[in-house]
Amino acid sequence: MSGAPQGEWPLYEVFVRGKRGLNHVHVGSLHAADDRMAVHNARDVYTRRNEGVSIWVVRADAITASSPDEKDPLFAPAGDKVYRHPTFYDIPDDVPHM
C-alpha cells in the first residue's frame, strides 16, 4: 500500500494478449485490493470477458525499469510526492472540456 492514500486499493498495470501469436500489450491500469481481484477486474474492464484472451496484471509499484532516471517509466503514480503540490487544484476551472 506504499504511497496510496489510506483505504485506496493499489494500482495495477494490465497487459493483454488479444490472440494467440501476439505479445502481451499494455492496455491500461486499474485498482484492485489484490492480484486475484486485479485479474478479475481486468477481464471485466479491458476484455469484456472475451474468451481466449490472456491477461497479465502486475502491481505498478513492482515494476523495475531500465535506466536510473526512469525509475518507473510506465507509471509510478502516488510514489512521486514531488508533484503532489496543493497548487495543482487552485487554477480556476473556467474551461469545461469534455
Binding site: 486499474l30 485498482h31 477486474n41
Partner: peptide, 11 residues
C-alpha cells in the same frame, strides 16, 4: 462501491 465493480455488475 468502485468503478471496477460498477463495470462488473453491469456485465
Amino acid at each position: 462501491p468502485d468503478l471496477e465493480e460498477d463495470i462488473a455488475l453491469a456485465n
